[in-house]
Amino acid sequence: MAYIEFVNVSKQFPGALRPSVNNCSLAIEQGTFVVLLGLSGCGKTTLLKMVNRLHEPTSGHILIDGEDIRHLPVTALRQRIGYVIQQTGLFPHMTVAQNIAVVPKLLGWQRERIESRIDELLTLIELPPAEYRHRYPSQLSGGQQQRVGLARALAGDPEVMLMDEPFGAIDAITRATLQDEMIFLQRQLQKTILFVTHDVEEALRLADKIVVMDMGCIVQYDTPFRILTRPANQFVTNLVGADDTVRHLSLISVERAMQSPPPDFHVNGQPRIALHDNLRNALSLLLRTGTQTLVVAQDEHPVGILTMGQIQHLVGRVHEL
């Protein structure tokens, strides 16, 4: 059964000419990483904020774990949902530790449990507790602040995380690092995540499933691969660059395309690529080294080969995959 469910949800702000969110229905499975993608003003934030009731729908309802969210006291609901925003919203008068302790305190946890939770989370986001516990937000870099924002949202061990462009204000390199950490974290934590972005690459990297929105409506809800290979309409095609072959390749693993080596093949100094890497990186490696064949390796052992010809062949058949 779906963990978060939107049923015919609409939201029209007072005085607005048209609804910001228009009759959206969406079922999200537990433990999935769902990215809301769309142009500025299409209603992503509005949809997100209805989940923790910072906005109330004009019509329709939202269920979490089968329960209508309006049936819970609003503070109790919010304490169960982690919330991360672009501007971090960290409390500048509280230390990192105090910021992280906010929700556990609201939940009435014991002091020792809160203290060990703070250390655990700081270790998880790779800010050594001894060094960072007593810093104030103003004494952290933008990327570190965003990590603390994430830790604070995770503190009460919520089932659901809402993240509104958390990496939007961060330079490209740091953003890529944070995305990697996010992927790594999600692999361990298996939260149900709703993540807003208008960065297509970010959506493709992070999402189990992408919700494409346009003018308040959900246009397509599908896996990144299917969004790219079977866009629902021209809008989706343009938005995600579904015509972009290289982008397709970034979603296909080397494992899927490799072949077993022909009998006369000898490992002989050819460039290597990891089994779990993607074809975009493989292509880049082929072009950079000017070879035709890569050795696919798993834990240093060659397990197959990947040729330029095979990548071209796959590009032609990508819509059948």
Partner: peptide, 8 residues
């Protein structure tokens, strides 16, 4: 907003 969102 963050304070509200956390359930204070």
């Amino acid at each position: 907003e963050a304070a509200q969102g956390m359930g204070m």
